[in-house]
Computed example of a mutant assay.
Amino acid sequence: MIKYDLHSHTTFSDGRLTVPQLLERATEKGVDVLAITDHDTTAAIQPAKAYIEQNNLALELIPGVEISTRWESFEIHIVGLAVDPQAEQLSELLASQQAKREARAKEIGVRLAKRGYEGVYEQAKELAGDAEITRAHFAAALVERGVAKNIQGVFKKFLARNKTGYVPSSWCDMATAINAIKAAGGISVVAHPARYQMSNKWLRKLLQEFAEIGGQGMEVAQPQQAPSERQFLGQLSREFGLLASQGSDFHYPMPWLELGKNLYLPKDCQGVWQFWEENEEC
Rank of each mutant, 00 (worst) to 15 (best):
R16F: 08
R195F: 06
F250D: 00
Q270Y: 09
Y264D: 06
V33H: 03
F138N: 11
E258N: 12
M198W: 03
R161W: 09
L233W: 05
R70K: 15
R70E: 14
Q274S: 12
K156I: 10
V154S: 01
T42H: 04
L90V: 04
K205S: 14
L203C: 09
P266F: 01
A183W: 11
V147K: 01
K201D: 11
G217C: 07
A124W: 10
F158D: 04
E28P: 02
H192K: 12
M1N: 11
W202D: 14
P20H: 01
D249G: 05
S237C: 00
A103L: 12
V143L: 12
K163Y: 00
A99C: 03
I213Q: 06
Q152M: 09
M174H: 12
D249T: 00
K267R: 11
E92M: 03
G215W: 04
V83H: 08
A26E: 07
F210Q: 06
I108S: 11
I2M: 10
A87M: 05
F158A: 05
T41Q: 03
P255T: 06
P193Q: 10
D268T: 08
T11A: 03
V19D: 03
R204L: 07
E102S: 00
A99D: 15
A140I: 05
F240T: 09
S8W: 05
P223W: 03
K29T: 10
A226C: 00
L236C: 14
G119N: 15
R238C: 01
K267T: 02
E132W: 04
L59I: 08
I178K: 12
L59W: 07
H7Y: 04
S68L: 03
I151F: 00
E209I: 11
L203N: 13
R204F: 05
F240G: 02
T42M: 12
A82R: 06
F155Y: 05
L233P: 02
K49L: 13
L23W: 06
T41Y: 04
F232P: 00
Q222C: 03
L203Y: 06
E75V: 10
Y252D: 02
Q224R: 13
A139L: 07
P168I: 09
A177D: 07
R135Y: 13
G247D: 11
A180P: 06
H7A: 03
P85I: 02
E209G: 06
F155L: 09
P85W: 09
W276P: 08
L6T: 06
G119A: 04
P193R: 13
H39Y: 09
K125D: 00
V110A: 05
T42A: 09
S170A: 14
E24T: 11
A105K: 08
A124F: 05
C282A: 14
E126S: 12
P193K: 08
I181Y: 00
R101H: 08
G64W: 08
G64E: 12
V272A: 08
Q97G: 01
L142S: 05
L57H: 10
G241T: 10
Q216G: 15
A128C: 07
Y264P: 01
L257R: 15
I52W: 00
A226S: 10
K149G: 13
G109F: 12
A113D: 14
T41D: 04
N279S: 13
